[in-house]
Structure formats: structure tokens, C-alpha cells
């Protein structure tokens, strides 16, 4: 446990001393902020139009602002994840520090968990930082915060799962760019797999659709906490980290 924390802490400080964390944080906030104000502006415009037409329609800030925004979050995650995870092992392999880690009295799984955990913390930090804008909604409207938290949880779980896959991919090469590109490809694939279910209902299509991260985001998106979907994300995390462990082991046997 202590070792995991030691590794995690170093990873985090390395994210923040290299510009990558700040870069991601800034870019993400700018893009997210822009989308946020778009949705809010549209929401206000609609509200005014309705008022002018004399309709007291039930406007819902959760449905019209928060939900699409967090949907966007989960989408932006596809771009953020590879940038976070690509360096985890690739960089250590490139500059030889992997020899330090692998010959220190820590177990492989502690190294892996520490790194993945640091990546997840950074990811959460970026999402939360951008979500500060939601505070405005609480000042001006009266959104329901429970479904919002559930959706946020979904965004985290999805990110953590994709990061586990990215961690695995990062062990395969010492080239960060290759690791990043492969991870991005994998994320995108797991995203588009959900599309097949719209025109195909064969077993294969069902399997593919099940594998897609988006399929399982649906319930979280609607603000419903679904154990089944949470279990999917947890299993992806488990499988990803399991493969990372195997990959590290084979690194030792092969190289």
C-alpha cells in the first residue's frame, strides 16, 4: 500500500512538473467552458422565447444543460485519456528508469496500481476542475444534484476504464507517440462499437455493443445508478490492469 502511494505521488508530481497536466487542464477547461456557455445561452434563449409565447413550460436545467454537458465530458475523455496514459511505462522504458523500478523491492502490481491511480487522479482532477462551472447553475437555477453526481461518476468510471487500457498499451512500446496513438485508436473503437446495435442484432453485434464504453454510459447519463454497468467498467479496469501485469511479466521473461 505504501509503495503504491510512493509511486503514485511521483507520477503525479511528474505530471505537474512537465507541462502536460497544465496543458490538459487549460485546454480542457477552455473547451468545456465554451460548450458550457453555449448550452446555457441556448437554455436562456429558449426560456425567454417560451415566456414571450406565454407558455409556462417545464424547463429542466438538468435535462437541457447538465446532461448534454456531461455527455460531452465523456466524449472529451477519449482525447484526454491517451495523452495522460501514453507516458506511464513508455517513458520509463525509453530512459531506463524502468530498471530502477523493476529492481527495487516493490512488486509489479504496486508499480502498476500506483501509475494507474495517478493517471486516474489527474483525469478526475481535470473533469472536476472543469465542472466548477456547474456552481453557476446552482446560483441561478435549481438543478437536481443527485443525477448529476451519478453522471459524473459515470464519467469517472469510463475514464478509469480507458486509462487501464492505456496503461496496458503503454507497456508495449518505448515510444510515447505510438502508445498514445494506439490508445486513442482503442478508445475510439470501444466508442464506435456501440453503433452496430442500431442496424444489426446478431450475437456478434450484441457482443460488440456490450464491449462499447458508450453502451454502458447510457444509464449513468440518464442519472440512473446501474450496478450492471458499473460492473462492466470495473471489469474493464480489472482486465486492463491484469494485462498490464502480464505484459510487465513477459517483459522480464523476454527482454
Amino acid at each position: 500500500m505504501r509503495n503504491i502511494w510512493i509511486i503514485c505521488r511521483r507520477e503525479l508530481s511528474s505530471y505537474f512538473t512537465s507541462p502536460i497536466a497544465w496543458l490538459l487542464l487549460t485546454m480542457y477547461s477552455v473547451i468545456f467552458g465554451f460548450i458550457f456557455w453555449n448550452f446555457v445561452a441556448e437554455f436562456i434563449k429558449q426560456g425567454m422565447e417560451m415566456e414571450m409565447m406565454g407558455q409556462a413550460s417545464p424547463m429542466n436545467i438538468n435535462e437541457q444543460v447538465i446532461r448534454p454537458l456531461l455527455g460531452t465530458s465523456s466524449f472529451l475523455g477519449l482525447f484526454v485519456v491517451p495523452l495522460i496514459s501514453m507516458r506511464l511505462f513508455a517513458e520509463e522504458k525509453r530512459n531506463g528508469t524502468i530498471e530502477l523500478l523493476a529492481t527495487s523491492p516493490v512488486r509489479d502490481i504496486e508499480i502498476i496500481l500506483g501509475k494507474w491511480f495517478a493517471a486516474t487522479v489527474l483525469y478526475c482532477w481535470i473533469i472536476l476542475y472543469a465542472s466548477i462551472s456547474f456552481v453557476f447553475l446552482f446560483r441561478f437555477g435549481n438543478p437536481d444534484w443527485k443525477p448529476m453526481l451519478v453522471t459524473l461518476l459515470g464519467v469517472f468510471l469510463q475514464g478509469a476504464a480507458l486509462l487501464a487500457i492505456g496503461t496496458f498499451i503503454s507497456t508495449l512500446t518505448k515510444n510515447q507517440i505510438i502508445a498514445g496513438a494506439l490508445t486513442f485508436g482503442a478508445c475510439l473503437l470501444l466508442w464506435v462499437f456501440s453503433w452496430v446495435s442500431s442496424y444489426d442484432s446478431s450475437t456478434w453485434a450484441q457482443v460488440m455493443s456490450y464491449m462499447s464504453v458508450i453502451t454502458h454510459f447510457d444509464s449513468f447519463d440518464r442519472g440512473v445508478l446501474s450496478t450492471k454497468d458499473a460492473i462492466y467498467y470495473l471489469s474493464v479496469i480489472f482486465v486492463g490492469l491484469f494485462f498490464t501485469a502480464r505484459s510487465m511479466e513477459s517483459l522480464r521473461w523476454r527482454s
Binding site: R10, S14, N95, G96, E99, L100, S104
Partner: peptide, 25 residues
């Protein structure tokens, strides 16, 4: 162990690095 290429994290300060390795050990 000192490998052929010293295993240094180039973005860390010397003392910070030594503390990290010490904790690791």
C-alpha cells in the same frame, strides 16, 4: 544497482529523486 545508463527522472530535482528512491527502498 547502477545500470549502464543511470536511471534518472530528468524532470526531478536531485534531492527529490534521492528521496523517492530511498522511499522505494
Amino acid at each position: 544497482y547502477l545500470p549502464e545508463a543511470p536511471p534518472l527522472y530528468l524532470e526531478m530535482e536531485t534531492i527529490e529523486y534521492l528521496r523517492f528512491v530511498g522511499r522505494l527502498k
